[in-house]
């Protein structure tokens, strides 16, 4: 299989970037998309060129490291699949593919297809947890949780934090990411004590990071490799609005 790739090349965070064309020959259809790039990179190094930088780690679709936009779609054309799990058999010889990094003000490009997603960590730091210090937990089976509820919390908790939702959203919004964590914790009985402050803290942090707002396009849901539902955004909106109607503000947490 032969492909024409147009890949975003950018030397560093403050350098200008541009699309560069690569003609890739004899791609094996059983290789993954990242393995195809590995092979290209080996050739680039041997030729004395700079290899294409991209984040990746587990290559099993669970760590959330990898991801870029292929022909306008975050993680490429296959639903519920990260680029590391996208295999070349889904393309055909002669295809032209455009590879670009996640584009968002909150995700500055570090190099080529690699972006800085620390904003996601700061959103979790703003309340995406249940405050239970080690050792203070009660016996696990003291709180029964109905299975359907536990399942819904699990489905929200599946988020891998890859950032595809932000990349695909025309507004560069992070509501699916934030909503998934708010929903996961606010659905569970353990999360009730901090329900309002969590929603307020995380939403306000999301704003500070420079993400856009939600226009209910549902683009995020379409490309989410874990198929996380936008119902979680609605849940976050409800909890945030309720908290704001009650005048709840973000908590300031101080260490021990």
């Amino acid at each position: 299989m032969n492909l024409t790739l147009h890949i975003w090349r950018q030397g560093g965070p403050d350098q200008p970037g541009r699309m560069v064309r690569y003609d890739v020959k004899d791609v094996n259809e059983h290789s993954s998309f990242l393995e195809m790039l590995d092979v290209l990179n080996q050739q680039l190094i041997e030729k004395g060129d700079d290899p294409i930088a991209f984040d990746h780690d587990c290559r099993e679709g669970i760590c959330g490291s990898c991801g870029f936009v292929i022909n306008g779609e975050a993680h490429g054309p296959l639903p519920k699949t990260t680029v590391c799990q996208l295999h070349m058999r889904h393309f055909k010889s002669g295809d032209t593919l455009h590879l670009e990094p996640w584009r968002s003000r909150a995700f500055p490009v570090l190099k080529d297809l690699m972006v800085n997603r620390s904003a996601f960590d700061r959103i979790i730091q703003a309340g995406g947890y249940i405050s239970v210090s080690t050792g203070s937990a009660p016996e696990a089976n003291l709180t029964p949780i109905p299975k359907p509820l536990a399942d819904r919390a699990f489905e929200a908790a599946e988020c891998i934090g890859c950032g595809a939702c932000v990349a695909q959203c025309p507004n560069g919004a992070a509501n699916l990411f934030t909503g998934a964590k708010v929903a996961h914790l606010n659905l569970l009985p353990q999360g009730q004590a901090e329900r309002e402050t969590r929603a307020v803290g995380m939403v306000e942090q999301m704003e500070q990071e420079g993400f856009g707002s939600c226009s209910n396009f549902a683009e995020c849901e379409a490309v989410c490799p874990k198929g996380i539902s936008i119902d979680n955004i609605a849940r976050m909106n409800r909890d945030y609005l309720k908290a704001k109607l009650q005048g709840v503000n973000r908590l300031v947490v101080v260490g021990a």
């Binding site: 239970v132 908790a157 569970l188 353990q190 999360g191």
Partner: peptide, 11 residues
């Protein structure tokens, strides 16, 4: 500890 943190174990 994990259940108190909200880890959604199978039920």
């Amino acid at each position: 500890q994990c259940v108190a943190q909200g880890v959604p174990f199978a039920r």
